[in-house]
Design a protein around this nucleic acid. Structure first.
Length: 585
RNA sequence: CGGGGUGUAGCCUAGUGGCUAAGGCGCCUGCUUUGGGAGCAGGAAACCGGAGGUUCGAGUCCUCUCACCCCGACCA
C-alpha cells in the first residue's frame, strides 16, 4: 500500500520513551511505533518500521541484481549434518542453536547460510561453464548472542542480506569481491549512511581476506584504527602498527628478588626500568578442536613486551584456538608457572606465542616463576621458544605501519562485511566442478552480508533531532506526511487522493486530534515532506509544504501540490545520489 | 557466564506490614474545542512477574525462580 490513514494505523506513537531505551535512535524507533520488543534481542517490526526495512531491502535487491545476483530463499532450519561436515557444528559454541526434530535428528537454526548454499550449489554446479555464479537472499538469521543490547544494533533474531559467490578461479573471486566492495558503497550511499571500509578478521567464517563496513559512531562496539594520512583502516582485532624494536647484545640472564611486583607497572617502578625493558606473560586457556572433533583445553602463554597490550583476537588466530579465556591461578600453577611472576621459561605443556615486540627486543626482564622473583636479561630463542606473531593491540597514538604517522581510533558499528572464503566450504561439502581441461576442482567461494535491521538502527542514530526521526527519503516509511487541521472540508481528502493517484507514498493524518498532537507526531515519525492543510491557507487556495529537516514552510497553491511534491521528492532523491561516495577496491 | 539494577493497567510512575492499590499519559462515552501534546463530566482497564514462606494481615519482609535492562566476558 502506497498510502495510509493514521486513523487506521496499527501502531501508535508513545509520548514517553519506554524504560531501557538508551540511545536516541532506539528511543525514537520505539516511540514512533516502528518496532516493538518481544524478548531480549527479539523485535517485531510494526508497519512503519517494516516499510523502512522493506525500502532498505529494495535498495539492496536492486544493487545485488545490478552486479548479477539471483535472489533465492534458503531455509532457516538446517539439518545439522551439513554443519557437522564443515565442522562448525563443533567449533561454534552456544551461539548456534541446536535442537532435535521428532525423529531425533540433529537440527540447527542457521546463523548464516554457507552450508546450505554450498550444499545446493554442489548439486547445481558441475562445470566451469556454469561459473561464475552469484546468489543472494534476504533472510532471517538466529544467533543466540550472549548479550543482545542497544536496540536493533545487536539482536539475536535479525534479517540479513547474504550473498554467495562461486567462481572457477581466484581471479573470478577477486572480481566478485570487488563488485561487492563497490556495490556496498552504493547500497549504504543510497540509504544515506556514510560508512568506512576496514580490513577485518574473518572470525568464524574462515577464509583469508575480509572487509567490514563501519558506521562510525560512539555507540559502536568495534574499535577501528585509522590513519588519516595514508588512509589505512582496520578493525582493532587485526590492526597493525609500527613497533619499535630494541635489539642489543645479549647478556646473561640473572635472577633478581622483586617483592610485591605482580604487575608490569610495579615491576618497572621497583627496578626503575622502562616498561619496554620487560616481557609480560599473559596466561589464557585455549579451547582447541582435535582431529576427531574432540575438544580439549591447553594453556596459552602470550608473551609481549611490557609497554604493549595483547589483542586477544590476534592471539586466538595465532594460537589456532577456537576459543580463548583468561586462565585461573590454579591452571597457571598446574603448568609450573607463578601468576604475577610468570614467564615461559621452564614452562610445562603449553603453547607459547611471542609477540614480535618481545622476540625482537633483547635483555627483557621476565618472571622467574617464583613468587617475588624475576629474571633480568631474558631473550627469546635463548631462554624460551615459541611461535612468533603479531599479537599486540593497536592503540590510538601508535605509529602507522605503512606511513609512520600517528594512528587514531574510533568506535564503529559493523553494518556489512565481505569475505573471501576460498574453498573451505566447497571442499568440505563436496562442491566441485570440472575445468576446461576436465580437472575436478573445488569451487572458490565468497560470502557477503548486510544486517538490514542494524542498518536501520544506524540510520536512526544518524538521522534524528530532539523531536524525532528524520530518515532520508529513500528509507523513510512514507514520502509525505499529510496533516489535516480542518474539518468540514473534503479538500484534505482530495489532496490525499491526488497524491496517491500520482504514485506518491502518503501517510495521511486524518485523526480528530488537536493540531499539537498531529504536529508532534509528524515530527516524531519524521517523514521527509510534510503538507499541512489549515483553514487560513486553504481560504487562500493553498496548503503549506515543509521539509522535516528545515523549519520554514512554503505556501503551495492547491493546483500545484502534486507537481511540487513530485519535484521535492526528486530533488531529495537526487541529492542523496549526488552526495554518494563510491570507492573501489 | 560474573557484577549491578528493575519488574505495580498499553506507556511513565507513586505506594511506613494495616480499610476497596494511587496518579499522569493513552483508551471508551457524551458535550465542547481545532495552527503546537485542549476543557468538562462520566467510564473501562492491574490476581502488584511467578512460586513458596514469615505474619492476625504482604505490592511492601524472607527464600527460590522467571523476565528485562546496564557494565564486563563474548560476538558477523
Amino acid at each position: 500500500m502506497l498510502h495510509m490513514k493514521m486513523s487506521q494505523l496499527f501502531s501508535r506513537t508513545l509520548r514517553q520513551a519506554p524504560a531501557g531505551a538508551e540511545s536516541k535512535g532506539y528511543e525514537f524507533l520505539l516511540r514512533s511505533g516502528f518496532i516493538k520488543q518481544l524478548g531480549a534481542g527479539i523485535f517485531t517490526a510494526l508497519p512503519l518500521g517494516y516499510r523502512s526495512l522493506k525500502k532498505i531491502e529494495g535498495i539492496i535487491r536492486e544493487e545485488m541484481d545490478r552486479i548479477g545476483g539471483q535472489e533465492i530463499s534458503m531455509p532457516v532450519v538446517n539439518p545439522a549434518d551439513i554443519w557437522k561436515e564443515t565442522g562448525r557444528f563443533y567449533t561454534i559454541d552456544k551461539e548456534l542453536s541446536r535442537f532435535k526434530d521428532r525423529v531425533g535428528r540433529d537440527m540447527v537454526l542457521a546463523m548464516t547460510h554457507e552450508e546450505a548454499v554450498t550444499s545446493v550449489a554442489s548439486q547445481e554446479i558441475d562445470s566451469y561453464r556454469q561459473l561464475p555464479q552469484l546468489v543472494y537472499q534476504i533472510q532471517t538469521k538466529w544467533r543466540d548472542d550472549p548479550r543482545p543490547r542497544a536496540g536493533l544494533i545487536r539482536v539475536r533474531e535479525f534479517t540479513m542480506k547474504d550473498s554467495y559467490s562461486f567462481d572457477a578461479d581466484q581471479e573470478g573471486l577477486q572480481k566478485q569481491y570487488a563488485a561487492h566492495y563497490e556495490s556496498y558503497f552504493r547500497i549504504f550511499g543510497r540509504c544515506g549512511l556514510s560508512v568506512i571500509v576496514v580490513g577485518s578478521d574473518s572470525g568464524m567464517m574462515g577464509g583469508s581476506v575480509a572487509h567490514e563496513y563501519m558506521y562510525l559512531s560512539p555507540i559502536g562496539e568495534d574499535t577501528i584504527i585509522l590513519c588519516d594520512h595514508c588512509g589505512y583502516t582496520a578493525n582493532r582485532q587485526i590492526a597493525a602498527f609500527a613497533k619499535e624494536l630494541f635489539p642489543e647484545e645479549m647478556i646473561p640472564a640473572e635472577e633478581v628478588a622483586t617483592p610485591n611486583t605482580p604487575t608490569i607497572e610495579s615491576l618497572a617502578q621497583f627496578l626503575d626500568i622502562p616498561k619496554r625493558k620487560t616481557a609480560k606473560a599473559v596466561f589464557l586457556m585455549g579451547t582447541f578442536t582435535g582431529e576427531d572433533h574432540e575438544e580439549f583445553q591447553k594453556l596459552i602463554i602470550a608473551v609481549i613486551r611490557g609497554d604493549l597490550e595483547i589483542e586477544e583476537a590476534k592471539l586466538q588466530k595465532a594460537s589456532g584456538a577456537k576459543d580463548i579465556r583468561g586462565a585461573s591461578d590454579e591452571e597457571i600453577r598446574a603448568c609450573g608457572m607463578e601468576p604475577g611472576y610468570g614467564s615461559p621459561i621452564g614452562a610445562g605443556n603449553c603453547i607459547v606465542v611471542v609477540d614480535d615486540s618481545a622476540a625482537g627486543s633483547s635483555n627483557l626482564t621476565a618472571g622467574a616463576n617464583k613468587p617475588g622473583f624475576h629474571m633480568m636479561n631474558t631473550n627469546y630463542g635463548r631462554d624460551y621458544e615459541g611461535i612468533t606473531a603479531d599479537i599486540a593491540s593497536a592503540q590510538e597514538g601508535y605509529s602507522c605501519s605503512i606511513c609512520g604517522r600517528t594512528l587514531r581510533s574510533s568506535r564503529g558499528v559493523e553494518v556489512g562485511n565481505i569475505f573471501q572464503l576460498g574453498t573451505k566450504y566447497s571442499e568440505s561439502l563436496d562442491c566441485y566442478f570440472q575445468d576446461v581441461e576436465g580437472k575436478r576442482k573445488p569451487v572458490i567461494m565468497g560470502s557477503y552480508g548486510i544486517g538490514v535491521g542494524r542498518l536501520l538502527a544506524c540510520l536512526t542514530e544518524e538521522y534524528h533531532d530532539d523531536k524525532g526521526l528524520m530518515l532520508p527519503i529513500t528509507v523513510a516509511p512514507y514520502q509525505v506526511h499529510l496533516v489535516s487541521l480542518v474539518k468540514d472540508s473534503n479538500e484534505p481528502e482530495k489532496i490525499y487522493q491526488d497524491l496517491c493517484d500520482a504514485g506518491i507514498e502518503v501517510l495521511y493524518d486524518d485523526r480528530k486530534d488537536s493540531p499539537g498532537v498531529k504536529f508532534t507526531d509528524a515530527e516524531l515519525i519524521g517523514l521527509p515532506i510534510q503538507i499541512t492543510v489549515g483553514k487560513r491557507t486553504l481560504q487562500e487556495g493553498a496548503v503549506e509544504l515543509s521539509l522535516r529537516r528545515e523549519s520554514d514552510k512554503h505556501k503551495v497553491p492547491l493546483s500545484d501540490v502534486v507537481k511540487t511534491v513530485q519535484e521535492k521528492i526528486a530533488a531529495l532523491i537526487s541529492e542523496i545520489h549526488d552526495t554518494m561516495v563510491i570507492e573501489s577496491l
